[in-house]
């Protein structure tokens, strides 16, 4: 069966590298309250905000620490490549596991988000939103690889 919308198997290792680089950078940023590492660069905001405690008008160059942007992009691109690169022996059964895992992860992700909406407030909720950018992919990766591992292990018992 032809699997549509998937990347080549060769891109999976690259995905893991990018994902873990993003994860490590993200953890370092979180542990240092976003103060370190401070990679300040000129940025060009398309959406701006004025009058609040931070002023960064749109369509004007300004300075910003791009560490968190970098970590987010690495996590998302890495996560997508890990999630949606074909396995070495991608076939219709593995595609079924893939689709089921995707449905499962969307349910789990939004289930947790609903709980957080109801029970978490203010800045803590902002943290929830940050984590929530990556959790669909993370839950998918965990569920998909766990079921793959289980189905591979089942072969051992059979023959």
């Amino acid at each position: 069966m032809k699997s549509r919308f998937l990347f080549s198997h060769k891109l999976k290792p690259l995905g893991w590298v990018l994902f873990f680089l993003g994860l490590i950078l993200g953890i370092i940023i979180m542990l240092n309250d976003s103060d370190y590492p401070n990679w300040e660069m000129n940025v060009f905001p398309l959406v701006g905000e004025e009058g609040s405690f931070l002023s960064s008008p749109a369509f004007e160059w300004s300075k910003n620490n791009i560490a968190d942007e970098l970590a987010s992009v690495l996590l998302i691109i890495g996560g997508i490549l890990v999630s949606f690169s074909k396995t070495k022996d991608e076939d219709e059964y593995i595609s079924t596991i893939r689709i089921e895992s995707l449905i499962w992860s969307v349910y789990v992700n939004y289930g947790i988000l609903i709980l957080a909406i109801v029970f978490v407030f203010d800045m803590e909720f902002f943290s929830v939103l940050i984590y929530n950018m990556f959790t669909v992919l993370l839950f998918f990766m965990l569920r998909f690889h766990y079921v793959l591992y289980k189905s591979k292990k089942a072969i051992g018992y059979e023959e």
Partner: peptide, 22 residues
């Protein structure tokens, strides 16, 4: 047939219904 071993195993365990092609 050009599928993974998991697929054969899952079919034999009646865990997976194959496509008509398979």
């Amino acid at each position: 047939i050009g599928v993974s071993r998991q697929t054969i195993n899952a079919m034999e365990l009646n865990k997976y219904v194959p496509s008509t092609v398979l």
